[in-house]
Nucleic acid binder design. Structure first.
Length: 154
DNA sequence: GCCAACGTTGGC
DNA sequence: GCCAACGTTGGC
């Protein structure tokens, strides 16, 4: 059992949007970074815990809890010439971009960046590191425990 | 294999 | 809109 933080722009797919989908599940399309892809392809397992993070918005921070809901499979948008995620170098025999399904479990109160940065226990969290741009980062069990229990009271 | 140019992310 | 950080591309 591993834990992850996954960023989504709420204008694109917010925690509310995903909770409103059938099965509360979304294919995590659009990742075009090899490190993030490798996490989905090689390291994630069904049932892994996910912190659903809102980025690129007025109030960036953790907005909900989710879980990995599938093993990895090819991201269809790489083959779609009409998609902004189209990759001309990808082909079906040799897909370049993989994704997993993510199931939203619940919306939480928003834990913003300032609040996260204020916690000594979270000072090494990857998403808080200077210059971090990775849209998927591993979360340690201690960080997960602290966020879900101390900050969210679950 | 080096590295400059360029594009993107994402907080502020 | 700005800008720091960093990944990718492509010429050499």
């Amino acid at each position: 059992m591993k834990y992850w933080l996954m960023k989504s722009e709420p204008a694109d797919a917010s925690i509310d949007d995903v909770l409103a989908l059938p099965g509360q599940t979304i294919a995590w399309y659009g990742v075009r970074n090899y490190q993030a892809r490798n996490f989905m392809r090689d390291a994630m397992h069904v049932g892994d815990g996910v912190l659903f993070y809102h980025s690129g918005c007025a109030e960036p921070g953790i907005a909900g809890l989710a879980e990995v809901a599938s093993t990895s499979y090819p991201d269809e948008t790489q083959f779609d010439a009409g998609s902004k995620y189209f990759d001309p170098k990808a082909d079906r025999e040799n897909p370049r971009w993989m994704l997993v399904d993510v199931r939203a479990l619940k919306k939480t109160r928003l834990i913003g960046l300032p609040e996260l940065r204020q916690q000594p226990l979270l000072e090494d969290m990857q998403v808080l590191r200077r210059g971090n741009r990775l849209s998927i980062t591993p979360v340690t069990p201690a960080e997960w425990q602290y966020i879900t229990h101390q900050l969210l009271g679950t």
